[in-house]
Simulated assay, not measured.
Amino acid sequence: MRLIDTHAHLYSKKFDADRTEMMDRAMESGIDQFFLPNIDSTSIEGMLQLEQDYPGQCFAMMGIHPCSIKADYKEELAVVEKWLGERPFCAVGEIGIDLYWDKTHFRQQQDAFRQQIKWAKALDIPIVIHSRDATAEVLEILEEQKDDRLRGIFHCFTGTLEEAQRIIALDFYLGIGGVVTFKNGGLDKVVKDISLDHLVLETDAPYLAPAPKRGKRNESAYVRLVAEKVAAVQEVPFAEVARRTTANAESIFKVGQLASKVVLENK
């Protein structure tokens, strides 16, 4: 059964020594498409090279991670705007608000988030959201910006069932990764009560490796471990989880249209 890794930083330097082998392991495990979130201007080159090396399999997003929003954020936004005007991307991401590490640039994070949402809506592509210690703040902006073009994925969802329902009501999918396998994480209890119609799978590689690989470098092959855990907690066959989450990913990213656009772009 096919699986899709909807969120993986496969251009990370942590893969420089064995990137080809890592990709081979993923494909041998049934993962045949990979969605690459951008961080900032420093990650673009490596991300686009990976997309070029794996046409029709790796798909680049464009955006600024909230932890990269500093005093010069408007310069970074200008880079994002330029790239969005030059070629197609699968999504604007990863974008959002992070109040875990530093609250210094909270206002700038809000401004950058709103601006990137507007660009995504204008281009009619989804957004992929990073939210840490900021669920209320992110949802406030999403509800403010909501219209029939706003859609996407709430990456690395780890919240409550009530938060999940609020996100789903906004027509967003929940990105479920390695945290669902953590013994005391609690996410498994939440996922148990959420329909597969609202879930996509991810690794966030090289971060947040699932059990029993926790503490090691994460990689896309391990999305299979996430799928197995979701199947276990929902008491459904693995094949059903694979089929439905893959269909969800293909739907949100419009994979059929996207593959042809990216192949043409890289010729």
Rank of each mutant, 00 (worst) to 15 (best):
I95S: 00
I95H: 13
G96I: 11
G96N: 09
I97Q: 02
Y100D: 08
Y100K: 08
W101I: 05
D102R: 05
D102I: 07
T104H: 11
H105S: 03
F106W: 07
R107I: 11
Q115S: 11
I117P: 12
W119A: 12
A120T: 07
K121V: 03
K121L: 09
A122C: 04
L123R: 15
I125Q: 04
I129P: 00
S131R: 02
S131D: 04
R132I: 02
D133F: 13
D133P: 08
A136W: 09
E137K: 15
E137R: 00
L139N: 08
L139M: 15
E140S: 10
I141V: 15
K146W: 08
L150Y: 00
L150C: 13
G152F: 00
F154W: 15
F154E: 07
F154G: 02
F154L: 13
H155Q: 14
T160S: 15
E163D: 15
Q165C: 06
R166T: 14
I167E: 01
I168K: 01
D171I: 11
G175F: 12
I176W: 02
I176Y: 02
G177C: 07
G178N: 12
V179I: 04
G185I: 05
G185S: 03
D188W: 09
K189Y: 01
K189R: 13
I194D: 03
I194Q: 02
D197Q: 14
V200K: 14
E202G: 05
T203S: 01
T203C: 07
D204I: 00
D204V: 10
A205M: 06
